[in-house]
Amino acid sequence: MPSHSPALGSPFDAPPPALSPVLPRNRLLPRALRLAATAMFALLVAACSERGAPWQLTNVSGHLPDLQFSLTGDDGKPIDASAFKGRTTLVYFGYTHCPDVCPETMARLMQVLTKLPSKDAEQVRILFISVDPARDTPQLLRDYVGAFDPQHARGLTGSDRQIESLARRYRVAYQMEKRDPKGNYEVTHSSAVYIFDAQGHARLLATDHDSPDAIAHDLRRIVEGDA
């Protein structure tokens, strides 16, 4: 049985959708979002047909590239994925001016950590990667993730180009919305959490439909090295 059907290969072999998050008025973006959503759906279908012990979350092993990035840490210094080698890493793309979904997702991940044995929780790092680098300075991100959990959570930002290429790598869709009269704006974005194992391999995808219990259950298996 093939790991995924040939028909499902096409969204992944096709060039990544042209995301241009720096341009609020880019009319191509709804199409890019749809493409990304289609890719995500195909990914879910492919993952669900995988063999092996069942996971409660979506198994993306072999379907997404290893954890790799070159960004700026919340201390203002350059940082790459090697800083998290040996850690189980939960990667979430969000932004600080997002009052509902982003903090709710982070709060849910906090709940997940409390459900793990403490030796396992120690191995986990939560990377909050900004899709709004224009507003999210390292200092703001540091305060933000620190308000949740300074021990496990790290905020990462970068240039528009760095964020864009990382989003493309993990097929994350995001899009700046129109500015309001005060110049504020929202960012439509993917709400999934990517789980990478200690070797940096992409393993699971958690969505806002997955309960903290389900995430904790599978995360524990990843931390403890279950294939």
Binding site: L33, F41, C98, D100, A192
Partner: peptide, 30 residues
């Protein structure tokens, strides 16, 4: 209101919110 659209979510301004007769309006995360 946070509106989920497949894999992405976005916020939308709300024009109207009704508390139904003998009912509940939950203003809650997500």
């Amino acid at each position: 209101q946070t509106v989920s659209n497949g894999s992405t979510s976005q916020m939308e301004m709300v024009d109207k919110a009704t508390v139904p007769a003998h009912g509940v309006l939950k203003i809650a995360p997500g």
